[in-house]
Design a protein around this nucleic acid. Sequence first.
DNA 1: GTCTATAAGGAGATAGAC
DNA 2: GTCTATCTCCTTATAGAC
Lengths: 199, 199
Amino acid sequence: MVDKSVATRAQIVTAADRLFYQHGFEHTSFTAIAEAVRISRGNFYYYFKTKDEILAAVIEERLAATREMLRRWEASDPAGRIRSFIRIVVTNGPDIQRYGCPVGTLTTELAKVEHPSRPAAVALFTLFREWLAEQFTALGRGADADALALHVLALSQGIATLSHAFGDDDFVRREVASLETWLATVIDRPEGNRCSSFC
Amino acid sequence: MVDKSVATRAQIVTAADRLFYQHGFEHTSFTAIAEAVRISRGNFYYYFKTKDEILAAVIEERLAATREMLRRWEASDPAGRIRSFIRIVVTNGPDIQRYGCPVGTLTTELAKVEHPSRPAAVALFTLFREWLAEQFTALGRGADADALALHVLALSQGIATLSHAFGDDDFVRREVASLETWLATVIDRPEGNRCSSFC
DNA sequence: GTCTATAAGGAGATAGAC
DNA sequence: GTCTATCTCCTTATAGAC
């Protein structure tokens, strides 16, 4: 039955997505995924021949979900879109505090084990990077849009990593507030009049 | 022979340190460490009863090495010390591009697998955090020294993560230059006159 | 202190019945 | 489509000779 097949496959991807995020790719076993979906390990291989295939499907799923999120954010103006991004670390605060950034932690893990899907994971970063650069360009900062995008991305990554390590809510809120203030000054100020390259 | 025992043990810790950094703790097997030190797997257990014991020794070693590095930096004035920290991502640029930040990647991995040594790894972060806060206090920013320390730590983490993901040298240099400029303004400026909470 | 041999368990992956 | 049974490989860890 095609419908059932599609549904079970989607359940596997959803469960694997969550477990890879919470416990890491390598640390998540077939047994753990099978138990989460409530199917046998054998049935598993009807849908995915290898563990790497599941990972590829999970990354595809995350790419699609991220594109959909960015699409929803386009309801705001460019400055509001960037603020939506900046606020992720607050919006998803509890998850990030427990498990870190889903993009950063996956990319790092796959790099350490030299996994073939590493470039696909980096593409998640690239998606945010290019989308942020577009917003800065729309705000009249086309000349250094990519640099500004990377700056926002880097600080968000750092906030996520330290939130994960220290579990300090105040720190996250403080950094996000500061980054939003920075954003406001970056947008309004002409290029020659800044306190630093990014300000 | 005690001397030999000490030397072999140190070699194991050094090799494990490097391999844990390059390939991750879980992905590094006893076999890999034993081959690196050129001893048999059996001999291995004469020095360490479990893999977790090696990890604990590696973290202790990293803590000691970090304290020693911070001690050397004390030859500079407080502002110079903070600049030494900021420049790590350039000084260790190639390693960080390949393997990420040794502190951040280890802490994240241990959290995902809920490893008992996770708090010890976080202590590495705390060491930098408190040392940075001391320097900001010495610069007359005692009121928000910890917040400033966390800010520098967070941005450095983010730079390391993106350097690892994208392998972009220019980005790293740009961010470090910007952070150094920021540092100069933060030190000189009275508390009321800033373009953002940190500037 | 160092070695070889081996135990015990878990992983990914396969075969074939239903 | 789903299952049980099984295979193979690799891991950590142990026992005991030298």
